[in-house]
Amino acid sequence: MSTAKVDRRVEHSHHFSSMEQEHEAGKQGVWLFMATEIMMFGGLFVGYFIYRFKFHDMYIAGGDSLDWTLGALNTLVLLFSSFTMAQAVTETMKGNNAKALKLVYFTTACALIFMVVKYFEYSAKIDHGLFPGFDMWNPDMEYIKSKIRDVALLNNVDPANLRLFFVLYFAMTGLHGIHIVIGVGLMIWLMKRLKNNEFSPKYYTAVEGVGLYWHIVDIIWIFLFPLMYLI
């Protein structure tokens, strides 16, 4: 593969003094962007914890009414996609654009599976009137009660407070979903460049950057999954 001659970059941009410096700068830029991602989602997590503290029972009830098996499935899918992405970076660093391309295909496929599962979850929630907006909020209390594990909570379920759980559920998983979609866009961009064999052991910042982004999306899900589905 390494003999293929396409417009592979060998020279750094004019304002850097070496490829190494340019790579380090690019990576640091991505890391800083990751810090902003942490802060942005962090805001929502702050909201989650504050309302959880205020409406503890509703959160248990809300969490029980989600399908945790689907959540677990999605967790595994995302973890696997993180692995394929990490491996894609490894292959790119070795100069194996073709192998990396296959791994990016896998990653994208995982992202799409994740979105399909999310679609089924969302439509189930919307069917039971659990979407807190557009005047669609009309919770099917029988459905919720059938899902709750702790019988003592049965009588405490107040739809008004339950609503806030679903506000955060849709806001957080929704924003996370948007990130997945953006991630798919980035993957498509990578595929194009990998097909052109643009990367080399000396120039792979783009793959690494998308990788970092994808892992952050995974990390956010690592926290979302237990908070939303399990506890």
């Binding site: 990576k27 640091q28 890391w31 800083l32 990751m34 810090a35 902003t36 991602e37 942490i38 802060m39 962090g42 805001g43 997590f45 702050v46 914890f49 504050i50 503290f53």
Partner: peptide, 21 residues
Amino acid sequence: MNRTIALCGVAFLLLFVGFSY
């Protein structure tokens, strides 16, 4: 540096949570 950046994100988040609490 990159470790510090990641840590900063987490640290400021904890600050945010802490004071709101």
